[in-house]
Write a protein that binds this DNA or RNA. Structure first.
Lengths: 193, 193
DNA sequence: CTGAATTTTCAGTAATTTCTGAAATAGACG
DNA sequence: CGTCTATTTCAGAAATTACTGAAAATTCAG
């Protein structure tokens, strides 16, 4: 591995973390390298810096492209492919969330839904289905929230994060306002949209 | 594998998902089995239902205990260990979040901090550090938010989720309220805590 | 077209991870 | 203490996953 110590520490860490996720060490290292590189890199740059085979780099880049985590660039009068990561870390986070949802959450929801369609054969299956329904409900609540907040522009999202639990304080204020509103229309039962 | 088709589909899916995370197939299957079981199971129950070796189950249970995902129960006048998962799916989610943070996020933050302490040797390292600082900032924002909302009771948290992006609408209301307040004290510069 | 540069594919090998069976350990109970 | 039951440990086998080198495919300038 042909990297400065500072860079190497980062790249090695992402290699480790990569194996802890579904992606392998080399893929993690390639990503880390592209993330911190000042300029787009071509495959041979990566081969040289990481000391792995050309074919391994090719496969790793392909996987990163499948994850939408890298951008392909072309320099004028150079046939080689150059790669970068998006500049905006929030955008990277969004992509990561979206891809993990697609790979992990959606298939799980679909399996749960399928099983919940079936009729339980006995008390054990009845209980199992009830548990699965609980899990399904939780995941659906989370993904509904996610689908909702992912539409926010980044600065709004950051603001929301910054508020954290203090949002509930504001909600209390809102509840007071709403309840004052209710005093004028005490028969109303539903909530405001 | 000695399970009803309905149960088996669930268990097999969690086995697959397990390998997609850091945990292995058997561990995923054991967890799934305990999650849907109506009663606590002992190791030999699991051996029988999953058709894997006793030692494999022992190791799998140990890993699940390390993740705080299973509870150990003892029945009166029975020396065997029985295992369950917590009933409350929100509690399970919290545990999962906490453990993954501990294993994935905290080490990353610590590596980033360590690298950011060093002095960059050249322009490349300067740029690399700037990128790492961006990543560090993002992760810190996310974990600050997480540390904040994890303290909420479950019903509050569920309410927040239910609101989703609509929270920003309420924030706009709040902003108006605050700005009305400002008209009385126009020199104030900071924000309310 | 040709051919040089670049990238991809893939069969085989290496490395890693998972799983097992046998043996060791732990502890309850007479 | 010895025995019986339950659990853990661990060395090696089995399975899976990652990696490589060689060959094939693709791309594009001339």
């Amino acid at each position: 591995m042909n990297l400065s110590p500072l860079t190497q520490a980062f790249v090695l860490h992402f290699g480790e973390m990569g194996s802890r996720w579904g992606i392998n060490r080399t893929v993690g290292q390639i990503y880390a390298l592209l993330y911190i590189a000042a300029e787009p890199l071509c495959a041979d740059d990566i081969v040289e810096k990481l000391g792995v085979s050309r074919s391994n780099v090719s496969m790793g880049l392909r996987e990163l492209q499948a994850w939408n985590l890298v951008l392909l660039k072309h320099l004028p009068s150079d046939r080689r492919d150059f790669f970068t990561t998006p500049d905006d870390v929030w955008q990277i986070l969004r992509t990561l969330a979206e891809e993990r949802k697609k790979r992990e959450v959606d298939p799980t929801l679909s399996v749960l839904r399928e099983i919940l369609m079936q009729k339980p054969a006995d008390e054990g299956e009845r209980h199992a289905q009830a548990r699965m329904a609980e899990m399904h409900g939780l995941i659906e609540q989370l993904t509904t929230w996610y689908d909702d907040v992912k539409k926010l522009e980044t600065d709004r999202l950051a603001m929301l994060l910054g508020l954290g639990a203090r949002v509930t304080k504001i909600l209390e204020v809102k509840d007071r306002i709403v309840s004052i509103g209710r005093q004028r229309a005490p028969t109303e039962k539903g909530r405001a949209p």
